[in-house]
């Protein structure tokens, strides 16, 4: 990051820069997703227009919602465990911010360039489970408890296919470093054709599909929204939240969707790199974030498309899908990738 501007920046400057960058990287995609997909595309699917009043074509609706949430009373149920109840949304949001750390936005535009980047990402993504369990337990409500437990069961079950789907990529790239995974795709070649590099979606298509499904489940988006199942559990673990804390959960949900899509695009779609350009050129430090954002929109489009279309699974069906279909499939994928890696 320092080299983008080619000037020495003092430590506090760097820190501020990174904090602001992190906030922007998390919140901007989240806002865009909510407006473009949740508000607008969903409305178009249902033959309506969605928000139209706040700003041109309702584009400031989200800000209005935020303003509304700030005005609301922050209600604590009387029997709630106050501290845990208050902290839960922050824990969930924290995991999102930790995730963004390892995502590369350009050859030099990264927050932290960890050698075990993807490993770190998968590890911190589980922190949100703790937040959700905290919310479910501390609310002192049966609906919240059921929702929290369901969420815990579901998130843990789908962590495994998520990790295993990534394994294929890691084997192919030969590194855990997210930045190097991008380079591996940019400089790789598929069966001797090197023109378009090697976006892993082509060779790891099964991995991509599994990653997408597991991601959908991790994000508790329909058809995997059992934990919040609004027709039976009211709002699951979020039932008792109101005002700003509910907003944090809400933002957390879509921010995580954005960040997970970033990871998916880094792993499978080549991250900030586009075919035909030299991955080392300084251009990508400017262009990279935009490219990545475009790819994120593609991936999230799929997520939301499924969301509008499908009814939700039942708890047991969900677990069956994870343990009986996705995990064996991803194991097969790993074995196949390993064999091919050795052969070629």
């Amino acid at each position: 990051m320092i080299s983008i501007l080619s000037v020495e920046i003092p430590y506090w400057g760097q820190t501020t820069f990174r904090v602001l960058g992190g906030l922007a990287a998390v919140l901007l995609p989240a806002g865009a997703l909510v407006y473009i997909y949740l508000f607008k595309l969903m409305s178009f699917v249902q033959s309506r227009l969605g928000p139209m009043e706040a700003g041109p074509a309702g584009s400031l609706q989200l800000l209005a919602e935020v303003g509304k949430a700030f005005q609301k009373e922050d209600i604590f149920p009387r029997k709630a465990d106050k501290l845990v109840f208050a902290a839960a949304p922050f824990v969930v949001l924290m995991s999102t911010f930790l995730l963004i750390l390892v995502v590369p936005f350009g050859p030099d535009a990264w927050f932290v360039n960890l050698d075990t980047g993807i490993f770190f990402a998968l590890a911190v993504s589980s922190v949100s489970v703790i937040g959700i369990l905290m919310a479910g337990w501390a609310s002192a409500s049966k609906y919240s408890l059921l929702g929290g437990l369901r969420a815990a069961g579901q998130l843990i079950a789908y962590e495994l296919p998520l990790v295993l789907a990534v394994m294929g990529v890691v084997i192919q790239a030969g590194t855990l470093n997210m930045q190097e995974i991008v380079y591996a795709q940019a400089e790789g070649e598929i069966f001797g054709i090197s023109g378009i590099g090697n976006p892993f979606i082509i060779t790891q298509f099964i991995g991509f599909a599994i990653f997408l499904i597991a991601m959908q489940a991790e994000l508790t988006q329909p058809p995997f929204d059992m934990p919040v199942a609004e027709s039976e559990l009211v709002s699951g673990y979020m039932t008792e939240y109101s005002g700003i804390r509910f907003l944090l959960f809400f933002i957390g949900e879509f921010a995580t969707a954005g960040v997970f899509s970033m990871i998916a695009s880094v792993l499978f779609l080549g991250g900030w790199w586009v075919p035909g350009l030299d991955p080392d050129s300084n251009l990508f430090n400017i262009l990279g974030p935009a490219v990545l954002f475009g790819k994120v929109m593609l991936v999230t489009f799929l997520i939301f498309w499924f969301r509008f279309t499908y009814p939700r699974f039942r708890e047991d069906q969900l677990q069956k899908l994870a343990w009986k279909v996705l995990i064996p499939l991803s194991l097969v994928n790993i074995v196949a990738t390993g064999i091919l890696k050795v052969v070629f």
Binding site: L41, F44, Q46, S47, R48, L49, W305
Partner: peptide, 28 residues
């Protein structure tokens, strides 16, 4: 769902400019 969205966004056919306010059945 895709068809429904396209019908809402492009009520005059896919090559015409989008006009969701015409394609939507709701009234502002």
């Amino acid at each position: 769902t895709a068809k429904s969205a396209i019908e809402t966004i492009f009520p005059d056919g896919p090559l015409k400019p989008p006009s969701p306010s015409k394609g939507a059945v709701t009234i502002q």
